[in-house]
Amino acid sequence: MTDYFAQVWAGLKATSMLELSANISYLISVWLANRNSVHTWWTGIIGVVLFGLLFFQGQLYADVTLQLFYIVTSIYGWWVWARGGKDHQELPITRVSALQLLTCFGLGVLVTLGYGWLLHRFTNASYPFIDSIVMAGSVIAQLMLMNRKLENWLFWIIVDIVAVPLYATKGWYFTSGVYILFLLNAIWGQYTWWQLYRNQSKREAL
């Protein structure tokens, strides 16, 4: 146990400036998403560019693909949140149906298995199937977040639970620790957005 903590401490001291900068930028973005702030998008773009470089270095190619997806959807999400509502007003928080939620889970499983197999078969990717869980779950969560769907936080919770040990195995202990914060933020975000959604629904009912 002592050797394990010594290894973790050594990893933390060896944290690169790239890893540190990526995590700080993305941590700010995630916190802003929790606050339902439109500024989550431009801060997120900075973070995902930095993470893309980090994951490429670590041969987590599913995560590299994911960062490219994040850049495109963040630009679109930025516009949608600010101007995508009724009469080009701010987009309100809404929910998905039970069928849509089950469909998303099913698609996530299929994408995980398919993309994981491709990475396993044709690349030297580390942990291709586990990495693909992070990618598939993040894509679904990002699409929901982009459209201000309440259930986006459920998928971020799944992603964060998987990502914490995955990144720790790569020696990215700082990133793994930050993802623990992301997990706590996602749980709190689910609660915060639920309260915002309830208050919004009450106002609309008046």
Score class of each variant (00 low, 15 high):
161 I>D: 00
23 N>S: 13
7 Q>W: 15
100 Q>S: 15
120 H>R: 11
201 S>L: 12
132 S>I: 00
114 G>R: 00
132 S>W: 03
137 G>H: 02
50 L>K: 00
202 K>M: 14
178 V>G: 04
83 R>V: 10
58 G>Q: 15
10 A>T: 11
107 L>E: 08
182 F>C: 03
115 Y>G: 00
200 Q>G: 09
3 D>N: 13
8 V>P: 03
132 S>P: 00
186 A>K: 01
98 A>S: 15
157 I>C: 05
88 H>T: 09
171 G>K: 07
196 L>E: 13
4 Y>Q: 12
117 W>H: 08
150 L>P: 07
183 L>W: 07
66 L>A: 02
45 I>Q: 00
66 L>R: 01
69 F>G: 11
92 P>Q: 03
50 L>R: 01
162 V>G: 01
32 L>R: 01
163 A>W: 03
153 W>G: 02
104 C>M: 15
75 I>H: 07
153 W>C: 01
162 V>D: 00
83 R>T: 10
25 S>Q: 02
20 L>R: 01
29 S>V: 04
116 G>Y: 03
91 L>F: 11
156 W>Q: 07
205 A>Q: 13
118 L>K: 03
109 V>T: 10
182 F>D: 02
18 L>D: 08
96 V>Q: 13
93 I>Y: 10
70 Y>R: 05
107 L>V: 14
130 I>R: 10
200 Q>K: 09
195 Q>A: 11
109 V>E: 09
6 A>R: 10
94 T>N: 13
45 I>C: 05
155 F>D: 09
164 V>L: 10
111 V>Q: 04
105 F>H: 10
96 V>L: 15
85 G>H: 00
21 S>L: 09
52 G>P: 06
36 N>K: 12
82 A>V: 07
198 R>P: 05
77 G>M: 08
20 L>Q: 02
42 W>D: 12
108 G>C: 07
151 E>N: 08
205 A>N: 12
144 M>V: 08
65 T>L: 15
95 R>S: 14
188 W>S: 10
55 F>Q: 08
144 M>Y: 14
113 L>G: 05
190 Q>K: 13
34 N>K: 11
39 H>R: 15
37 S>W: 08
73 T>V: 15
81 W>R: 03
135 M>N: 00
176 S>Y: 04
152 N>I: 07
10 A>Q: 12
187 I>Q: 00
86 K>W: 06
153 W>I: 03
8 V>W: 09
157 I>V: 11
153 W>H: 04
90 E>N: 06
130 I>T: 14
10 A>W: 05
44 G>V: 01
203 R>N: 11
136 A>E: 03
96 V>W: 08
191 Y>P: 04
90 E>F: 06
67 Q>V: 04
19 E>S: 01
116 G>P: 01
126 S>Y: 14
134 V>E: 03
94 T>H: 10
64 V>K: 02
